[in-house]
Structures are given as C-alpha cells and as structure tokens.
C-alpha cells in the first residue's frame, strides 16, 4: 500500500492541480493577511472559509482523481496487488497531497507574518488539524461516490450534492427541527445533530475556540459539560476520527466486491 501511496502521490505532485490548490491557499493566506493586517482576525476569517472550502475541494478533487486515474488503477489491478491496498493507497495519496497543499499554502504566509511569536498559533494549529480532518473525510466520501458510480457525470453530480447538503441544506433542516421542537429539551438533540455532520463537527471545534463566551450562555447541562470542559474537544476529535474511519472501511469493502 505504501508503494501505491508513493506513486499516487508522485503522480499528483506531477499534475498541475496540486500546484493550483497550493497556489490558491497561498493566495488566500496572503490576501487575508493583507486585508486584515491582524493575525487573529485573519485566522477567524480563515476558519469560516476553511470549513466550507476544504470539503468542496476534497470531494471534487477526490472524484476527479478517481475517474482520471482509471488507467493507473487498471494497470495496478493487473498486478498481483491487494485490492484494498490499491484503493487505500490512491485515497491516501490524494488526501495527503491535498492536506499538504493546505498546510503549506496557508502555513507559509502565516509563518512569514510571525505566527510563531503570536498567540494565534493554537487557533491556527486547530485550523490546520480541522482542515486535514475534513480533507481526509471528504476525499474518502468522494472515493465512495466514485466507486459506486461508473458514470462520471453522475459521480460529479452526487459529489456536489453531497457537499451542498452537508454544508448548507443540513443546517437548514437542523435549524427547522430545533425551532419546531423548541418546547422540548433540545441540548442532546442539537449535539447529536452536530456529530452527524462532519462540517458541523469541525464548526463546533472552531466555536469552542472563538465563541466559548456565547456558548456558555445556554442553560442545558449537557451543553455545559460539552462546551465547558475538554469533553467537547475530545468527543469532537473522536467523532472526526470515526468520520474518517467509516468511509475508508466502506472503500475497502466496496473495492473487494467490485468487478473490473
């Protein structure tokens, strides 16, 4: 698997898309720092951008890579290699190269701006960790979609739809549910609702950093335990890991069953 990971990674490093994403994040970092003139504020803006953009890029790029590397996959399939290692290797190749574009693209401008001397370094690290998690999750989801759909157009369609659903529509439905049942105690429901969507989950991690004052204004005991202690942080990270593991398991499962 590591060998396949290596070749996928090389393959991606060769393709111009990795550079496009790297350049994009670099530009984003530079522009935000230039506009805000303030590291902390730039980090806040970035957090808002990251939780929407990283999933979009992860899904689109994942689906694209899968369809584009069909030949490579076929070549590998002709070799005596384990199926699961072929697909996991490719998946990790994509996810890692995307994460690297993200970390380097954002890290470099912030480093030059004096990140290490700033108090924003923890927020920034959290941002990069969250971004990496989201990349891992959404690339895995993209691979799932692509593995289940031979038709490219359909695959892309589902990928965009998935992103749109998790980034926007889900929250809309969530909000409506909460308002509809406002007479009942809702703190458990709202936390569970958050756990079920990786974008919301990452958002909570960011809320824990930026909006803890507002979150503590709410009365619910479960809420309080979740946001008032490290419990929330730990649970969120566990759930993010689950969100990586489940789709990856499905990749191996699907890959084993598929005919080529």
């Amino acid at each position: 698997m590591l060998k396949i990971l290596k070749y996928s990674f090389y393959d991606l490093m060769r393709s111009r898309w990795s550079y496009v994403y790297f350049a994009f994040y670099l530009l984003l970092g530079v522009v935000l720092l230039f506009l805000n003139n303030d590291l902390s504020k730039a980090v806040i803006t970035l957090m808002n951008v990251i939780i929407i953009l990283v999933p979009l890029i992860g899904t689109i790029f994942g689906v694209m890579y899968y369809y584009n590397s069909k030949e490579f996959t076929e070549l590998l399939l002709a070799q005596p290699l384990k199926r699961s290692s072929i697909f996991l290797g490719q998946y990790l190749g994509v996810a890692l190269s995307l994460s690297m574009s993200l970390i380097l693209g954002l890290g470099i401008p912030f480093m030059f701006y004096g990140l290490f001397k700033s108090s924003a370094i923890w927020d920034f690290s959290l941002l990069l960790i969250t971004g990496t998690f989201l990349t891992l999750i959404f690339t895995a989801l993209a691979f799932n979609i692509a593995l289940s759909n031979e038709n490219k157009i359909k695959g892309f369609g589902y990928a965009i739809l998935l992103w749109l659903f998790l980034a926007v529509i889900y929250d809309g439905l969530f909000l409506m549910t909460l308002i509809m049942f406002e007479d009942y105690p809702l703190d458990k429901l709202s936390l569970v609702g958050t756990m079920l969507n990786p974008i919301d989950l990452s958002r909570t991690l960011i809320l824990l950093k930026l909006d803890i004052s507002a979150l503590l204004g709410y009365t619910g005991a479960v809420f309080k335990q979740f946001f008032g202690t490290n419990f929330g942080l730990i649970v969120s990270f566990i759930m993010l890991t689950v969100w990586v593991v489940l789709p990856v398991l499905r990749i191996t499962f699907k890959a084993k069953k598929k005919d080529f």
Binding site: F174, L178, E182, D187, L207, F223
Partner: peptide, 19 residues
Amino acid sequence: IVNRTPETIILLRSMFIDI
C-alpha cells in the same frame, strides 16, 4: 432566532446562517 430557541446557538457560523 437564538433568543427564541437557545439551542440553535450550535449553528453559529454555519453557512446557512450566514445566508
């Protein structure tokens, strides 16, 4: 909205809310 249904605070900074 938060004033009315406090639990919705969990949706703070969501894109839907921005919209």
